[in-house]
């Protein structure tokens, strides 16, 4: 299953990802992304990837099949 990863060193709390896919991304009190799930079903992949692309510092990646 495609796997979602976050680079917490890069994350700046812009939160575009949470707006785009709130079922997959959240943000903690310090403004760092929290991945609600890391295994992404194929049917959700396009939406989760679009949310990842909305990250201004490219902190999010979906890899694998």
């Amino acid at each position: 299953m495609p796997e979602l990863t976050a680079d917490l060193g890069a994350c700046q709390g812009y939160a575009n990802c949470v707006v785009a896919a709130p079922d997959t991304y959240d943000i903690d009190d310090d403004g760092l992304v929290v991945l609600v799930r890391t295994e992404i079903p194929e049917e959700d992949r396009a939406r989760v990837e679009e949310a990842a692309r909305s990250c201004p510092v490219s902190a999010l990646k979906v890899d694998g099949k």
Binding site: G13, A15, V19, I27, D29
Partner: peptide, 12 residues
Amino acid sequence: VNWPRAMLMARR
């Protein structure tokens, strides 16, 4: 300012 959770809430 320095409050991303509140930003999310406000945006919603």
